[in-house]
């Protein structure tokens, strides 16, 4: 279970030289990336975080993943506070980092998985077997021994999923998982995530996305964030019942705000 309680995240904007000179004692300006977010995600949920660019989706996921600490409030993952018990809290979390360069490009895909798996405390014998399973799972068998610089974006995205799954986490955070994929590749990846990870393995999924079809394909709950505030949090069933489509729900919530 993930409990986000009254979380705010404030980023400080560094002062410019001119401000240091003319207003040395003035406090730097702040940006509220998240304001007073409270949400509870139960085990086995698949939650989509929808919102405009810069709404705070990635920031909230990073706070939940323990990569950022909230300015105010607290986040508990399976009872562990992400600030006070950071290491324990992220033991059950796998973060699919949507960054091409997060791999070592001069190493092969397999070598990358071995490296990160070792840091994830997976034993040597278990790691070999786990990598074999995952490579098969993300359909990378042919390419896994090639250096990562030669991979397409889609292959790197699938490798990122395999990396996050090496330690078999209970919770998987995906930040725009299909952003760089072609339409068919995106459909295949969604099927993989939903059928295998969510339905078969019962993993809790937190997915930041801009794509409504992704929400419908992957998630059973939808959270809308705008300007750092959680505007709505409903199940997909409720959304369909009340608004018929996710688009209408989104337009209604964001439209109200604007």
């Amino acid at each position: 279970m993930i409990k986000v309680q009254n979380v705010s995240m404030v980023f400080r904007i560094p002062k410019r030289y001119r401000e240091y000179l003319f207003h040395p004692f003035r406090k730097p300006k702040n940006v509220n990336a998240i304001s007073g977010a409270t949400i509870t995600i139960t085990k086995g949920d698949a939650v989509a975080f929808l919102g405009p660019n810069g709404a705070g989706k990635t920031t909230l996921l990073k706070v939940i993943g323990g990569l950022l600490y909230p300015t105010e409030g607290s986040v508990q993952v399976n009872g562990y506070d992400t600030v006070k018990q950071n290491e324990k809290a992220h033991e059950t979390v796998g973060y699919v980092i949507n960054e091409d360069r997060s791999f070592y490009w001069r190493l092969s895909g397999r070598h990358n998985l071995e490296f990160f798996g070792t840091l994830d405390n997976v034993s040597r014998s278990a790691l070999r077997e786990r990598i074999r399973e995952l490579v098969d799972f993300v359909d990378m068998t042919e390419h896994i021994d090639k250096q990562v610089w030669g991979y397409s974006s889609g292959m790197r995205q699938r490798l990122a999923i395999a990396r996050a799954l090496v330690s078999d986490p209970e919770i998987l955070i995906l930040d725009e998982p299909t952003r760089t994929l072609d339409p068919l590749g995106a459909v295949k990846l969604r099927e993989l995530i939903y059928k295998e990870l969510h339905q078969a393995q019962k993993k809790t999924l937190l997915v930041a996305t801009h794509q409504v079809q992704e929400v419908e394909a992957l998630c059973n709950k939808v959270c809308i964030i705008d300007k750092g505030r959680l505007r709505a949090f409903l199940t997909l069933k409720e959304i369909k019942k009340r608004y018929r489509t996710v688009e209408r729900f989104y337009a209604k919530v964001i439209g109200e705000d604007q």
Binding site: G65, G66, L67, E87, H90, E91, V93, Y95, I97, E99, D100, R101, S102, F103, Y104, F116, L119, D120, N121, R163, S167
Partner: peptide
Amino acid sequence: MAGSFEVLLSTRTN
């Protein structure tokens, strides 16, 4: 600079 810092921090090694 390479972009692997966050991934390193998200592993189970402190």
